[in-house]
Design a protein around this nucleic acid. Structure first.
Lengths: 274, 274
DNA sequence: CGAGCGTTTGACAGACCTCAATATTGGTGG
DNA sequence: CCACCAATATTGAGGTCTGTCAAACGCTCG
C-alpha cells in the first residue's frame, strides 16, 4: 500500500531536530503555558486540576518517545488514545486505495492527534513520527472524562480542535483554488510561521524535517512537479528549499502568491482560557 | 469581488425547503437531543444549565431567521457571535483575490458557524444562507463563558468542532488526490448522508438546495467540467442530479469511486456527552 | 414575451501528470 | 578515504485531464 513512507526521514540528517527541540529557548508564552511544551503538560494539568489531579489522572500523565518513521496509529484501525505532541514533528495522512496518500497535517508540539475517534471504529488517517518525538498519551475515555469535569481542560481541548479546523479550511482553500505555486507557497509559509513560533529562527533559514515528496503529498501535486515549481520559485528569488532547509527570500510576494487575505489572521497561537 | 453569490438559490424553486424543514418528522435521537434542532436548543440549555440558566444566559437564547442568499458574516470582517443552525442550510466559503471562491462547508442544522474568531480580527471565510434559515445566536464571549462554566456545554462544543475538523480532512483528501468524478462522488455522498440524517428520505430522491455551480466551487472544478462529469455519471447509471434533486442509483460503486475506506466511519452524529 | 440564470455542448489550450533516464545526496562498509 | 547503494532530486518528452472561451438551449419569473 505504501512503500511511500519507508525512510521518510532518513534524508535530512541528524541536525534537523535542533529546530523542534525545546532546549534552545522557551519562547515567551502567556500565563502558565510553555508555547512549546504547551497547555497539556503535567505541571499545567496539576495546576488546573489542583487537588483533584489524582482523581482525574489516576495513572498520572505518561510520556512516550517514538523514533522517526514509526507509525503512531493506522488508518482504518481503532485507536483508544489521544496524543499530545511535546516535541518533534508528526505527520498525518490518508492513504487511498490507488496507493496515493494525502498529507492532512504536519503536527507540531502542542497539537493534538487522535482526538476524533470513538475507540471502536477505524481512525480516519494514519499518524507517523516525522522526527523523533515525545508524546503525552491519554486513554481517550480518560481524556474525555477529565475534560468533562474540568471546563478549562475542555476549553483548551476545544481551542486545540478549533486550530485544527481552521488549518484544514485553509488547506481546502489552497487545494481547491490555487495553482501549484500557490499551494506550495501556502504550505511553506504556514510551516515557516509555525516552526519559527516553536523555537524562533536563528537567521533567515529554518529547518523543516521534510522533503519534496512531503510537499507533493501535502499539496496534491507530484514530486516531479513540485521540483519544477520550487525551481521556478528559486529563479524568481521567492525562496530557497533544499536539504531540509527553507529560506524565505520574499515573504511579501509569497503571501501574494498564496493569496493570503491581509485582513485575516491565520495563525492561532495556543489559547489561554480564562 | 463576487457577483458570484447573486441569486445563488433562485434556481431550485420554492420546494427546496421541504427537506430542511423540521416539520416532517423529528428523527429518533438519543437522550434529550433532537437530531435536527440539536444540542444547543433553548430547552436543552435549560436542562444542562438547570437553575444556572438565567445566570449563564442573562438575555436568554435568541433565535434569528435569515432569508436565502443573505450573508451572515463576511470574510475579512470581525464578527462577535457564534451561530448555531436550527433549520435550513448555510454555505461557508473563502473568496480569493482572483475572484474565485472555494466552498468550505455546507452547514446543516446542528452545525456551528463562526466559533473560531476572536472578535477583533477578520473572519477567515464568508457565511451565507443557502436557504431560509433559523439560527441560535450567541455573543461569542457569552458562548465561551457558558462553555467555560459548563463542561457539558464545553464538550458539546468540542464535539461539534471535531465534526468540522473531520469533515475538512475528508475534503482535503478528496481535493488533493481524487479525479473530478471522485470529488463529485465524495461531495454528493456526504450531502446525501447528512440530508437523510436530517429529515429522512421520502424515496430514493433527496432534495439538495444546490446547483452545479455550488458543486464546482466545493470541488475545485469549473461548472463546465462538473456538468460533463455529472453527465458521465448519469450515463454510467451512478446517480442523477437535477433541479435540486439527487438520486443515488449505485451507492456501492459511488463509494468505490470516492475511495471511501469501509473501515472508517465518516459520519459523526452529534455527540451526547455523559 | 423577454430577461436572467443555470445548463449543455464544442473546440481548443494549458497546467499538471506519466514515464524514463540521469544526477545528486547521504549513508554504509571495506 | 573510496566504492557502493538507496533514496531523493532533476530534467526531458509526450500525454491527459481539466480549464477557457464561446455559443446555444431551457427554465422560471415578471
Amino acid at each position: 500500500m505504501n512503500g511511500n513512507s519507508a525512510g521518510i526521514s532518513s534524508g535530512a540528517g541528524p541536525v534537523r531536530h535542533a529546530m523542534v527541540s525545546c532546549s534552545r529557548r522557551p519562547p515567551a508564552g502567556r500565563g502558565p503555558y510553555c508555547r512549546t511544551c504547551l497547555a497539556w503538560d503535567q505541571s499545567l494539568c496539576r495546576q488546573i486540576a489542583g487537588s483533584d489531579f489524582d482523581r482525574l489522572f489516576p495513572n498520572g500523565i505518561r510520556y512516550q518517545t517514538r523514533e522517526a518513521g514509526v507509525a503512531l496509529f493506522h488508518q482504518g484501525q481503532p485507536f483508544d488514545q489521544v496524543l499530545i505532541i511535546r516535541s518533534g514533528w508528526v505527520l498525518t495522512y490518508k492513504v487511498f486505495q490507488d496507493g496515493q496518500r494525502q498529507i492532512i497535517r504536519f503536527a507540531l508540539p502542542g497539537d493534538l492527534i487522535g482526538f476524533e475517534g470513538d475507540d471502536t471504529s477505524g481512525m480516519a488517517y494514519t499518524a507517523e513520527a516525522l522526527s523523533d518525538v515525545t508524546l503525552c498519551s491519554f486513554k481517550r475515555s480518560l481524556f474525555y472524562g477529565v475534560c468533562s469535569s474540568s471546563p478549562q481542560m475542555a476549553m483548551n481541548f476545544a481551542a486545540a480542535v478549533t486550530r485544527e479546523a481552521l488549518a484544514a479550511w485553509n488547506h481546502v482553500g489552497a487545494l481547491g483554488q490555487q495553482s501549484a505555486m500557490g499551494r506550495v507557497a501556502n504550505l511553506l509559509l504556514d510551516l515557516h510561521r509555525r516552526a519559527v513560533a516553536q523555537c524562533g529562527a536563528d537567521g533567515p533559514a529554518v529547518r523543516l524535517p521534510i522533503n519534496q515528496i512531503h510537499i507533493a503529498d501535502a499539496t496534491g501535486l507530484t514530486s516531479v512537479h513540485v521540483c519544477r515549481t520550487l525551481k521556478q520559485m528559486k529563479l524568481e528569488r521567492l525562496l530557497e528549499f533544499g536539504k531540509g532547509q527553507l529560506v524565505l527570500l520574499d515573504p511579501e510576494r509569497l503571501a501574494e502568491i498564496a493569496q493570503l487575505d491581509p485582513e485575516v489572521e491565520l495563525y492561532q497561537p495556543p489559547l489561554a482560557v480564562a
